[in-house]
Nucleic acid binder design. Structure first.
Lengths: 373, 373
DNA sequence: ATGTCTATTGCACACGTGTGCAAAGAAAGG
DNA sequence: CCTTTCTTTGCACACGTGTGCAATAGACAT
């Protein structure tokens, strides 16, 4: 049925071992013989069995990628970056989505171990340490991308989210905003913390307080979550606007609506933008909104979204290159390889969703009267 | 190093073949023995070698998926649908992006053949018949999703794009539109043709002409292509508006701007929406825009996009189920299996980007004076 | 001619798993 | 007690490939 090197050997009148050598390009076989064998192999449509080779060489030429969801526009772009590099180097890609489900995670790791993937790239933000341990125990190198616990892994590529989040926040501050809120995503592990930290640090170093209710954590990181969060901010703005009106007669302003919102990512920002627009708020006139990641669609909202351009494809490509490099190093004890952590930085991408706050709104000089968060 | 059934056999005091049987759940082994073996296997963290098993059984438990791009929001959702089903059934997924590049396609097919993927799902719209032939020749069943030449393949899942496109067009006609343009995507094979055909049929059966310049094919199917196409339609509208003004004094209107545009997909529509908005046109007051696919972000544009909801995840899941079903059937001659083509239908999703045309625009009674396309 | 070296090839075995067949033991039936 | 049948286990071999080692033959020097 399927033809093997033995078939070719028979046809060429040599031993199958000579065929094996010829096709692998070994110098141990005469040029003439080699040529003849290659000829026959090509004509017969011979396809070497990866299984047999893998069994013998302990190399599967397969890399695993774990991602939380395959249809996440952020991860899928990273995935594409990984794929383009691995394909170029003759490795195949094993893609699996954990869906934030420990049981699926477990099955994925099991499958990758059984297939003896040469290495695994983990993009899934929350990934159980236990499963990772299983992989390492089996000698499979792991490269982690933007993970919650980059320090726990020896090899990782990650984006400096703290810096990025700071830049975004500072951008708003530079525009003149003083009352800036933050819309987070509770379920993204390390990234959750880093971006929030960046926001808080930028606010603090500018001497700005984070007011009550200005920190809101959505349950997920999709546009629907952003839309839902709009209710929170919208309510906040309305009640505070009402408060403001009431109190303005008393020359006091203990509650004020935010003039800008920094979002955990673009998808949340897009949902929020939609929600606030529906509620009648104008962006950026009434409120500025900034996202993070620069997913493709962030450029096509109305108004286009100010965001932080994370080099997603490049991050994926770097992760792939790193793991390929690890596979080059002459085996030995994996634990003795030196750790390698690569920190990448993106750039701020100011677009039309952020602008200076309306000067007719309460002036910054009143700041000290607001309640701190 | 890595532990095998022989190690377990030694520890259990049996032959490795008994271990093999026990772990595979063969009834040929005593319950007690079986239990003991499973115990040891679990404790020792034994992972069966997929390579060895594949070699022996001719089953790799691997399915291949070819897609044109992994970060396409449409395909990645289908991919997620596929993955969720295959994972549930213990199959692993080999994902690869062809990028419309024949050479990559060739490498992908090569890799999948070498890994002896049990079956392949092709979502990449343009896929070389030659490569497909290689797969079939090797006995690998192929299931095709929304492909250009569904009839050429024995197994396919596809969406009734003709019907969908008709529905979208009719929706606009029902709203009162008479001058409707079409923004296509030249590079999507079968889908390109079907959606255009649906548009044309709906127009024809309503007795409406397709005017000169109203059919525009973009080079690709991304938002950037839609944005670029906006120049075309915007120019069309301006020049025609100018023409209209000139001619209105003569009570004639040989050239009129479209009041609606049907787009090949949501991404083009989103780009077009952006472009026309930038050019100062209001949607849907000045012009209605409809997309196709119902990608996540189509709900978050301003205004939200009227589109056709294609059940992407379901399509992917069905494709996976179909190929798994094929793998169940007792081998034999693949050519004798009966073909199976599954046609799915989505539903129209009217949103705010389409509305009745402005009644102050030229009335439908003037239709017969327009130049036909 | 003999010995040495090199180039080329084949043999034997291994990788980890699964299966047909025989063997051994136990149970059942006479 | 013997024969038959069933249950349980082991042996031998196969899947397709790669590699250490020996074998052969030719080239070259002595």
């Amino acid at each position: 049925m399927t033809i093997t090197i033995k078939d070719i050997a028979r046809q060429a009148g040599v031993a199958h071992t000579t065929v094996s050598r010829a096709l692998r390009g070994s110098p141990l076989v005469a040029a003439e013989t080699s040529e003849r064998i290659r000829q026959i192999a090509a004509e017969s449509g011979y396809r070497p069995s990866a299984a047999a080779r893998s069994l013998k060489t302990n190399r599967s030429q397969v890399l695993g990628v774990v991602v939380s969801s395959l249809d996440d526009p952020f991860f899928s772009e990273i995935l594409q970056g990984i794929e383009s590099v691995t394909q170029e180097h003759g490795y195949s890609l094993f893609a699996a989505a954990s869906q934030h489900d420990p049981q699926r995670e477990q099955k994925i790791v099991q499958a990758m171990l059984e297939h003896r993937a040469d290495g695994v790239i983990i993009c899934s933000t929350p990934f159980s340490a236990e499963q990772a341990h299983h992989l390492l125990e089996y000698g499979r190198p792991i490269v982690v991308v933007n993970n919650q616990a980059a320090e726990e892994y020896r090899y990782s590529i990650y984006h400096d989210d703290v810096d990025g989040s700071q830049q975004v926040t500072r951008h708003l501050i530079d525009l003149g905003h003083r009352r800036i809120a933050y819309l987070g995503n509770a379920s993204s592990g390390r990234t959750t913390l880093d971006r929030l930290a960046g926001f808080q640090q930028a606010m603090q170093s500018a001497g700005l307080p984070i007011l009550d209710g200005y920190l809101y954590q959505a349950a997920g990181g999709g546009p629907a979550d952003g839309l839902a969060a709009a209710h929170h901010f919208s309510g906040l703005m309305q009640s505070q606007a009402a408060d403001l009106e009431r109190h303005s007669m008393l020359q006091s302003a203990s509650l004020l609506p935010p003039t800008a919102v920094v979002c955990f990512n673009d998808m949340l920002a897009i949902g929020l933008l939609q929600g606030l627009s529906l509620a009648g708020w104008r962006v950026p006139q009434d409120i500025s909104i900034a996202g993070f990641d620069n997913i493709v669609f962030s450029a096509y909202t109305q108004p286009p979204l100010t965001t932080f351009d994370q080099p997603k494809r490049y991050i994926g490509a770097e992760a792939a290159r790193l793991i390929l490099e690890l596979l080059q190093t002459p085996g030995g004890d994996m634990a003795r390889w030196e750790p390698k952590i690569r920190l990448l930085r993106g750039r701020l991408l100011p677009r039309a969703s952020t602008a200076s706050p309306d000067p007719t709104l309460p002036s910054p000089s009143q700041e000290q009267r607001w309640r701190g968060g």
